[in-house]
């Protein structure tokens, strides 16, 4: 079987060569800084401290423009928030409920089963408050971009005050090293001391970006820890089973070879 395998390798190498030599005119891919994330790798988990700090960054900074519509307050229980803490966070929000017995809609404090309350009533209201731009929902942001965690981290720390001289900036846009096209409608959201961390961690720009990305990575894939834990067990089982199947196969075929 060695000859076909070699041919296969040659074919793959040829493709790889084509892959690394993109023809002229291919869209320029901005450099994204590769970070070490607590949730990457086979045994990755979300660092609990970063999650809590990231939630704080989301609520105090991002949430003024970006919704998180797929996450319910109760979901925070999966990553170590106690029922009392969840209740306390939920009660800071008001949600519309109803109709009541008189047929009226009414406002009440949010419950653990409610989802994070969006900052704007609808898309038009969001655009009206944001210079015509629509701040996207962040629930799936990490999965909705290539290399999502590194990309978002790069975007958050990638603002440059002065655009390069040859770039003509459009009205109300900000220059960002990582954003496709480099002109982004979102003002730099994070900076030194943008939040005062409840756990006393120093709120550098880097720290804030790192924490909020960890939080959003959890929001996009809350099943990640369970998935990886189960995956390790399943693969270990399969490897042992398959090795035994191979032994049985050898035994059965021994009278043929």
């Amino acid at each position: 079987m060695s000859t076909p395998m070699n041919k296969l390798l040659i074919a793959v190498a040829a493709v790889a060569f084509l892959g690394v030599a993109p023809p002229a005119g291919a869209a320029e891919a901005p450099e994204v800084p590769e970070q070490d994330w607590s949730f990457s790798g086979m045994f990755g988990t979300f660092e609990r401290g970063a999650l809590r700090r990231g939630l704080q960054v989301y609520r105090e900074v991002c949430a003024s423009c970006h919704s998180l519509s797929l996450i319910a307050f109760r979901n925070l229980g999966d990553v170590g928030f106690s029922p009392d803490e969840i209740q306390a966070i939920a009660e800071e929000y008001e949600v519309e409920d109803g109709p009541d017995d008189e047929g009226e809609m009414f406002m009440r404090p949010a419950k653990a089963s409610d989802r994070f309350v969006p900052p704007f009533a609808n898309e038009q209201a969001a655009r009206a408050s944001n210079n015509g731009a629509l701040p996207p929902d962040l629930s799936l942001m990490i999965k909705a971009r290539k290399n999502g965690a590194n990309y978002l981290y790069g975007l958050l720390i990638g603002y440059v005050e002065e655009a390069p001289e040859d770039v003509e900036m459009m009205e109300g846009m900000y220059y960002n090293k990582v954003f496709p096209g480099h002109q982004i409608a979102m003002a730099p959201p994070l900076f030194e001391e943008a939040v005062e961390y409840a756990d006393g961690t120093e709120a550098t720009l880097d720290q804030e970006a790192h924490d909020v990305v960890t939080f959003l990575a959890w929001a996009a894939q809350p099943e990640l820890e369970e998935r990886k834990r189960l995956g390790v067990k399943v693969l270990l089982f399969l490897i042992v089973l398959t090795a035994m199947l191979y032994a049985v196969k050898r035994k059965i075929w021994s009278d043929v070879h």
Binding site: T242, L245, Y246
Partner: peptide, 15 residues
Amino acid sequence: IKDTFGLGVFMIVYL
């Protein structure tokens, strides 16, 4: 048995 062994290898990759 040969197919079952192959299935084991496949499942490792798939999963």
